[in-house]
Nucleic acid binder design. Structure first.
Length: 294
DNA sequence: AATGAGTTGTCTCTCAGGAT
DNA sequence: ATCCTGAGAGACAACTCATT
C-alpha cells in the first residue's frame, strides 16, 4: 500500500482517482461507528499520549501507535470522524454519491461538533487532524480474511486549501478504507445523542460510547465488571484510580439517555446501566428510523 | 484501598476584527 | 448584519506522585 506520511498530496495518485465529496451544512443526526465505540482506539487524556495501546481480548486485538511529535488521536479528535460518518450516512440515505475524499470548512466541523470558533478552536482542529493522520492503527476487527497485517491512519491525509491571496478556502481530507467501509455498512453504525459533544471528560465520553453500544435501547440495560471496563478503556491509570473516577461519574450521572449504577456483588464491582425512559432524542430517533423504512 | 495535591495541556468564554 | 478567523484569560480533566 502507499504510504501516507506526507502532507503534500498534489501528486498522490490515490487522490486523483477519488470523487470530491462536498459537506452538507446543517443539523444532521450524529452517527458513530460501533467498532470505535466498543474498543480502545483513542486516548482519553487531554495531555498528549505516546504510550501505545496494545489491547487483546479473546480473538480481538488492537494496536494503536503514536509519534512523539503529535501524540495519539484522542476521543475529542474522534468527533471529526463522527462528523465525517454523519455526513456520509446522510448523503447515502439521500441518494447522493459519497467519497473518501471530503471537502469542508473548519467552521462547519467546529460548529457541528459543538466547539467554539475562536482562534484556539481552529488551531486545535488542525492539531486534531494532525493527530488523526499521525496515529497508526492495526486491528483484527474486520480483518479476519486479510492475510497480511494492515496498518492505517484515521485520516490518510489532509490539507488546507488557500486562494491566490493566501486566504483559507477550506480543508480536504481523505478517510481510510477501513473506516469508510464501516460507515457505509448500515449494521456497523449507530446514531448517538447530540448531547455527547457537550461531555467534557474523556472518560465520560468513552463511557457514553460503550454504554450506547452495549446498552442500546434495551429496557433491561446491561452491566460490566469494572476491571473488564478498565481493560477495555485503554487508559494508563491504574485500576483503582479508574474505579475512583468511574464512581465519581456515577455520582454525577452525566450521560444523556442513560442511568448508571455501581453495585458491589461479592466483592467485585459492577457497573450497570439502563436507558432512561424514552427521551426526546429517542423519539426523534424512531421517527427517523420509521421514515427511513419507506 | 482511597483520595489529595500539583502539573500539564486542552477546552470554554469573552472580546474583537476583516470579509462578504 | 452575518460569517469566519484571531487573541488572551481562566476553567477544567486526567496524569503522576504523595499521603492517610
Amino acid at each position: 500500500m502507499a504510504h501516507h506520511s506526507a502532507l503534500t498530496v498534489r501528486d498522490e495518485p490515490d487522490r486523483a482517482q477519488l470523487e470530491l465529496f462536498r459537506s452538507i451544512p446543517g443539523n444532521i443526526p450524529p452517527r458513530d461507528a460501533q467498532d470505535l465505540m466498543a474498543w480502545p482506539f483513542f486516548s482519553l487524556a487531554k495531555s498528549p499520549r505516546t504510550v501505545p495501546i496494545a489491547f487483546e481480548m479473546g480473538q480481538t486485538w488492537i494496536s494503536v501507535e503514536a509519534v512523539h511529535q503529535h501524540g495519539m488521536a484522542t476521543i475529542w479528535d474522534a468527533d471529526i470522524l463522527i462528523w465525517a460518518a454523519s455526513q456520509l450516512v446522510e448523503a447515502r440515505d439521500a441518494g447522493r454519491p459519497t467519497s473518501r475524499l471530503m471537502a469542508t470548512t473548519p467552521f462547519e466541523i467546529l460548529t457541528y461538533i459543538g466547539r467554539g470558533t475562536s482562534r484556539d478552536n481552529y488551531d486545535r482542529l488542525k492539531a486534531a487532524l494532525d493527530r488523526l493522520q499521525a496515529t497508526s492503527v492495526a486491528t483484527s476487527i474486520r480483518q479476519q480474511h486479510e492475510r497480511r497485517r494492515h496498518r492505517f491512519s484515521w485520516i490518510n491525509e489532509w490539507q488546507e486549501r488557500l486562494d491566490g491571496k493566501g486566504r483559507p478556502l477550506g480543508i480536504e481530507l481523505i478517510l481510510p478504507d477501513w473506516f469508510y467501509a464501516a460507515v457505509l455498512d448500515r449494521a456497523l453504525i449507530l446514531t448517538i445523542d447530540p448531547a455527547y459533544f457537550r461531555l467534557t471528560g474523556g472518560l465520560e465520553r468513552w463511557l457514553y460510547r460503550i454504554v450506547r453500544k452495549h446498552g442500546g435501547r434495551q429496557v433491561g440495560g446491561w452491566s460490566f465488571d469494572l476491571s473488564h471496563l478498565h481493560a477495555k478503556s485503554g487508559v494508563l491509570s491504574p485500576y483503582k484510580r479508574f474505579a475512583f473516577e468511574l464512581r465519581d461519574i456515577v455520582r454525577r450521572q452525566p450521560l444523556p439517555g442513560y442511568h448508571l449504577l455501581i453495585d458491589r456483588d461479592s466483592g467485585r464491582e459492577r457497573l450497570s446501566f439502563a436507558p432512561i425512559a424514552l427521551s426526546g432524542f429517542e423519539r426523534a430517533l424512531r421517527r427517523t428510523r420509521a421514515s427511513q423504512q419507506r
